[in-house]
Design a binder for these strands. Structure first.
Lengths: 146, 146
DNA sequence: AATGCAATTGAGAATCAATTACAATAATAT
DNA sequence: ATATTATTGTAATTGATTCTCAATTGCATT
């Protein structure tokens, strides 16, 4: 079975909620899925600018919660004062290892967390929606530079 | 062997860096250790107000990085637009399970993460400083209310 | 105890990401 | 086609955090 494209997922979401399909939203979504890795609003806005798209930042801010709500995008916390995002559709859920010195971000998969979610659900009666794990430290280079 | 009090830890930190011991910083620190659970800057400021302390928000913002730096306090991310904190001295490192509906926050300990840190250090050559794990979902009550 | 230096403070201004009001536009249903 | 109403861009606003600056104060040294 072939996976639905992210645009398809989004259109179904839109239709199911009496929202409207607009070129702006689809441009934003498409751009997000062309970005390899993480991004923030500014970056995304600039990339769209470069492609002659006139989408405003406000529209980006307004579209992101929709993408998040339909499971295409995820907020990522790098503890640097503003939000970062990444597309997650079709990706294994992963965590981030970030260097406090240079800001490098590595991704890794920790399979044990799925089981943890099951345990938590059982123990506390929660319906788990997801999790975020960030590990931070110093990369080899930044250790030397100390 | 008796554990040093948080004030002692802080004083040593201060002395070691040629910083100054001030009543404001110690009031803030004391208040933080009287708070059971998480807090944000506003809350902390109000609590100090109530005790006739005139510490300003600016000083709180300036003191928090010091407490974090000497391992007494930790930032907690609830993804709600501003920072939360908690004191951690003498506490087992724990993670948070947060209800997206009512905001309830439960704490739990996941021992597997210590091992994970060791693996990451070995695999990527990082010196790990710490991690943050948040799990989110709906508590039993909020599931019904849906 | 008095002095000098530099760290620290409070108040308010500045910054910056994110949200919102508003008038114009455009997507869907009829 | 038309009416309805969601969505847009612009600019103003909000709210958390940081910064500036003059006044204060901790601490080392007389």
């Amino acid at each position: 079975m072939v996976m639905k494209s992210e645009i398809q997922v989004f259109r179904e979401y839109i239709r199911g909620r009496r929202l409207r399909r607009t070129p702006e939203r689809e441009q934003i979504l498409q751009e997000i899925f062309e970005i390899h890795g993480h991004f923030d609003v500014d970056e995304l806005h600039l990339r769209l600018r470069d492609k002659a798209s006139k989408v405003s930042k406000a529209s980006i801010y307004r579209a992101l919660p929709l993408f998040i709500d339909c499971g295409l995008v995820r907020e990522v916390d790098f503890s640097d004062g503003h939000w970062h995002y990444e597309h997650i559709y079709g990706h294994a859920h992963h965590s981030h290892l970030r260097c406090l010195g240079c800001g490098e971000v590595l991704e890794f998969v920790e399979p044990g967390l799925g089981l943890l979610e099951v345990h938590l659900a059982r123990e506390y009666g929660y319906r788990i929606k997801g999790h975020q794990l960030q590990v931070h430290g110093l990369c080899a280079t930044c250790q030397e530079a100390e």
